[in-house]
């Protein structure tokens, strides 16, 4: 898999329209500097065929004393991540199955057009929209993904 903070984009002929059917996380998840907030937890139910995120990286957001957890994310173009390759969906499905079997609390989320991207202009300017981010408190898993 890719190293953290390495970002690459694959060329597209056209941008895909925003997919209203995709799950969205509430607007509260924005990582504002002074406010600690917990993203709402929702069960992921992907309908699109997902893509392997081999070529994406994940810079870490700044650590905040006010927040109990550090979040890691990986960001990509939504069409690439969700449509072009199927393995991404399989990985999430496998992870959900495992969490269910072991009664483990969900610690990862798929966020479409995350607002926190505004705080990372170096990424945003190279990213075709709409964007999707895979967010988790498990940094190792994001490194792998």
């Amino acid at each position: 898999m890719v190293a953290p903070a390495t970002l690459s984009l694959r060329p597209f002929a056209t941008l895909a329209p925003s997919r209203a059917a995709l799950p969205r996380v509430g607007a509260g998840f924005a990582l504002p500097p002074a406010v600690s907030c917990q993203p709402r937890r929702r069960r992921l139910s992907l309908r699109a065929v997902a893509v392997d995120s081999d070529q994406q990286g994940s810079p870490e957001p700044p650590d905040q004393e006010a927040k109990p957890k550090k979040y890691h994310f990986l960001v990509a173009n939504a069409k690439f991540m969700l449509d072009e390759e199927e393995h991404f969906q399989e990985q999430l499905k496998e992870k959900l199955r495992l969490y269910g079997e072991r009664e483990k609390e969900q610690d990862f989320w798929l966020v479409v057009e995350p607002k926190f991207l505004d705080r990372f202009p170096n990424i945003t300017k190279r990213l075709k929209r709409p964007a999707v981010a895979l967010v988790s408190t498990d940094g190792n898993w994001i490194t792998n993904a």
Binding site: T6, P59, E60, I123
Partner: peptide, 13 residues
């Protein structure tokens, strides 16, 4: 592999 492509250094925040 794009890991060998010329990209900016790892972003650190």
């Amino acid at each position: 592999s794009v890991d060998f492509a010329e990209f900016e250094p790892q972003l650190v925040y």
